[in-house]
């Protein structure tokens, strides 16, 4: 596989295999790579879990990670943490590891593809009403769109779409722009400066994974809790948008 060229705007452009409408691009390949690492790592580490107070270091790392995600979810939603945890945890881990692997030469984060981020955002788009309806019932959930008055219905619908779009574009924009900046800097100043930018890129990747996950929690929380509570707790963290 060739390194993504400067003129290639997305890893979707790197086609590895194509047959009829089936096209295996670099995005899918790297997605599978991240999936494989996550799944195989999980199997290896959780193969001999210990319930004793003394445990292996890897188990300790995984437990800290899982407990941190659960506590983050628990800070936003009042109850049913374990209901949302697999979805939000998987989003966070997938985006996190996709972004962290950018230190591997030749690797391109799948999250720098608008297709991937759109797919993730669409899942959030559908997950929010699914969780909301399952929690409150369809009528109570739909009533939220007409609060405080029915005039707000179009704005609520527009909000749903716009925040989904914002989720997809925010993640894609940050990751894609960073990779392009790295690529340009490698061409212009191929010494130590790109390394510093690479480290910065890892930080950005972690922050973006966190933002995506937290926003998802907030959207789900706003849909599953009552209108007043949701208004009180849901605050769009615009300051984190870039």
């Amino acid at each position: 596989m060739e390194v993504v060229a400067i003129n290639q705007i997305s890893p979707d452009q790197v086609i590895l295999f194509s047959w009829w409408f089936v096209t295996i691009s670099a995005t899918l390949l790297y997605t599978w790579l991240v999936m494989g690492v996550l799944v195989i790592g999980s199997i290896l580490i959780t193969g001999n879990l210990s319930s004793d107070p003394i445990m292996t270091r890897w188990q300790s790392v995984l437990e800290v990670l899982v407990e941190t995600i659960r506590s983050e979810i628990g800070d936003v939603v009042k109850d049913g943490v374990d209901t949302y945890f697999p979805f939000i945890g998987t989003l966070f881990l997938f985006i996190l590891f996709s972004n962290l692997f950018t230190f591997i030469p030749g690797y391109v984060a799948p999250t720098s593809s608008l297709t991937t981020t759109s797919a993730l955002a669409i899942m959030v788009f559908f997950a929010v009403p699914i969780y909301g309806i399952s929690k409150q019932g369809i009528l109570e959930y739909l009533k939220e769109y007409f609060r405080p008055t029915f005039i707000f219905f179009p704005f609520h619908v527009m909000g749903e779409f716009s925040r989904t779009l914002a989720l997809a574009v925010r993640l894609f924009g940050n990751l894609m722009s960073h990779e392009k900046v790295i690529a340009i800097l490698l061409a212009v100043t191929p010494l130590l400066f790109p390394v510093v930018m690479q480290v910065l890129g890892l930080l950005i990747g972690i922050i973006q994974a966190y933002i995506f996950a937290v926003l998802t929690i907030v959207y789900i929380a706003s849909a599953t809790q009552s209108h007043e509570e949701a208004e009180h707790k849901t605050k769009e963290p615009n300051s984190t948008n870039r």
């Binding site: 999936m35 799944v39 899982v66 998987t90 881990l93 797919a119 993730l120």
Partner: peptide
């Protein structure tokens, strides 16, 4: 990617979350 994510969700739930939370 949607399918991939759902598969990943299923596998992590099976091999990671359930076991870790159980432990």
């Amino acid at each position: 990617q949607i399918v991939n994510f759902l598969i990943l969700l299923f596998l992590l739930k099976k091999f990671l979350y359930g076991r870790i939370i159980g432990a």
